[in-house]
Write a protein that binds this DNA or RNA. Structure first.
Lengths: 201, 201
DNA sequence: GGCCAACCTGAACCGTGATTCACTCGCGAA
DNA sequence: TTCGCGAGTGAATCACGGTTCAGGTTGGCC
């Protein structure tokens, strides 16, 4: 049978899926979620509109998965830094923030879409979870730092969330008036890292 | 002529307008922007759907104006605190944050809709401007504090924005899991105020 | 080479909800 | 009392864009 299990066909299938996800990312980065119509994504991916529904049950699912991928990649970077041994908690907090901001400013405006632009409850849910996951990393670092006596007692939950909010807002603001700040990328990252370090001290 | 300039008619006009704006606020607070259909707002305001368009050119304009009103009220509170004489800049920064957070947590979930829920580019624009205006207040306070030697030199622009992001995120997070934190209102406000004070020091 | 299943296609469909518009109604002036 | 103006009405219209599906195409197997 000329079935899905055929390696050639399976490869094509998987490739289509990847291309559609990639197209979703590109379109979102390029035009924002608002302009991200299924037909446009399909065109960019080089498939027909209907083919999108062969791989994803709905537009929302497609974008939710795309967003999840992107967020997980960034989250992994932050988690890796958070887990580095032999460094104080505040030190790692600063490095996490700096790395995240620097990476986001380096990329296209995908960061904007991912962080703030809305689209659908299902997608918003993913964004919410990603923010919560980031906040959890910082909350854990704060708890660690307090336990080690490197930081004063504080509400780690609230402050973890506040850290995420602080650098995302700083980030989005910098993205907004890019015309003024194109070279300051590293400076913004460092400034936000210091801000967050000071905030927990 | 039986024209608009008639006091009775003018009063009715103005009253309808006010009622529609009020209804928009109520519906948004109650159901969120997502469920805020023009027909629903009209029903709550006690007018016909079409009448909404006698006062506002579009749904987006209606909600943009509603949002602008709400934001301006909050902004006025923050500005008043920022202008209080005889207090150090960091002191006022903390009080501004505390007041904003406390007021937002006291109100209904309008705060959520206003801060993060998306709806339309025109509305988003208002939100963006409101955030920028808030950030500007904090930036000015930081500049003042640095000039007075109460704060170390820093990028006031970036940190002003970061302050806004920090407490809004802390706020939204607290709103999200309200079940856990209903009594902590004041505590959250104080924690975020301390966070922001520390961040600029 | 012939056959069939599964894939791909994209134009048509459909639900949703903003916007419109032909009409009614109430008010104030003559 | 009657007339004219313009606010008020709400059902019909319209645009939009996600989703479907009836047919064409492809690739593997006998």
């Amino acid at each position: 049978m000329p079935t899905t299990s055929s390696p050639k066909v399976a490869a094509r299938l998987a490739d289509s899926r990847r291309r559609i996800l990639e197209a979703a990312r590109v379109v979102a980065a390029d035009q924002g979620f608002a302009a991200a119509q299924v037909a446009v994504v399909a065109a960019v991916a080089g498939v027909a509109t209907g083919s999108v529904y062969r791989h994803f049950p709905s537009k929302a699912s497609l974008f939710a998965e795309m967003l999840r991928d992107v967020c997980e990649r960034e989250l992994a970077v932050v988690r890796a830094i958070a887990a580095e041994p032999g460094r104080s908690a505040p030190d790692r907090i600063g490095t996490c923030v700096e790395a995240f901001v620097d990476r986001a400013l380096r990329g296209d405006n995908l960061a904007y879409a991912v962080i703030v632009e809305p689209m659908d409850p299902e997608v918003d849910q993913v964004r919410l979870e990603a923010r919560a996951a980031l906040a959890a990393v910082f909350t854990a670092l704060i708890v660690e730092g307090v336990a080690a006596g490197e930081l004063p007692p504080q509400d780690a939950q609230v402050r973890g969330a506040a850290i995420v909010g602080a650098y995302l807002e700083g980030l989005v603001t910098s993205l907004a008036d890019r015309a003024d700040h194109p070279p300051d990328r590293a400076a913004v990252a460092v400034e936000l890292a210091r801000f967050c370090q000071g905030a927990v001290r």
